[in-house]
């Protein structure tokens, strides 16, 4: 019997891997579509040229503010990107996942938020990671906190926020976000589990249905 079970689980694993592969392919297509930097750049240049011809007196202000922003960008952007590179190289994704299960209650959620702020990859890497963690039995609150922090707080990006919006604004926004994330994920967990109780037929079966 164990052989048959083993074969089944291998099949399930394969199907999952396939599913994931397809998802990534779909994403790459979306990315290609969304990130058509070229057309965006060409479109904005065209718009700028047309507008400059239509409203010549406003051209000066356009050139001045573009030049100013270019200067502000170029003084920090290289540093931000280098910091991102350093994180990618020094902080291993496996380490992040290993630490994520630790701590319980609020401390677990805080660990999740902290680990989410480490720039270890784009959001679409985080979804399969989160799904794996849930299947391994991690709390919904922790995983959701991790995912939300991964989405909205990234240490190198925050340097950009400080440069353009000021340190006071940045610190306030981050504090408010972290403080509010905790009740949010706890509430979400309660809502999520409530429905699960209603629908429950068999423990493991139900879990599989929800997360696959």
């Amino acid at each position: 019997m164990s052989e048959e079970q083993a074969a089944n689980s291998v099949n399930a694993e394969n199907a999952q891997a396939q599913n994931r592969k397809r998802t990534f392919q779909w994403l790459r297509k979306v990315n290609a579509k969304v990130r058509t930097g070229y057309s965006l750049l060409a479109g904005s240049i065209l718009a700028a040229v047309v507008l400059s011809m239509m409203f010549p007196p406003k051209r000066g202000k356009f050139v001045k503010s573009s030049a100013m922003f270019f200067k502000e960008m170029i003084t920090v952007l290289p540093s931000v990107l280098v910091l991102m590179g350093l994180f990618t190289v020094w902080v291993k994704r496996e380490t992040v996942v290993r630490f994520l299960g630790q701590g319980s209650g609020i401390s677990g959620i805080l660990i999740g938020i902290f680990l989410g702020t480490l720039p270890t990859g784009p959001l679409y890497i985080a979804f399969p990671l989160a799904s794996m963690l849930l299947r391994k039995g991690a709390r919904i609150a922790t995983v959701m906190a991790f995912l939300s922090a991964w989405a909205c707080i990234k240490i190198p990006q925050e340097l950009m926020e400080i440069q353009f919006l000021g340190i006071r604004f940045t610190l306030l926004r981050l504090t408010a976000t972290i403080v509010l994330l905790i009740p949010m994920v706890l509430f979400a967990e309660a809502m999520h589990d409530r429905k699960k109780e209603e629908k429950r037929q068999g423990d493991t079966v139900q879990r599989k249905n929800i997360f696959n």
């Binding site: 965006l40 904005s44 718009a47 700028a48 507008l51 503010s65 573009s66 922003f69 270019f70």
Partner: peptide, 8 residues
């Protein structure tokens, strides 16, 4: 592109 858009 963003720099130009901000200028616009």
């Amino acid at each position: 592109a963003l720099i130009i858009i901000i200028g616009i």
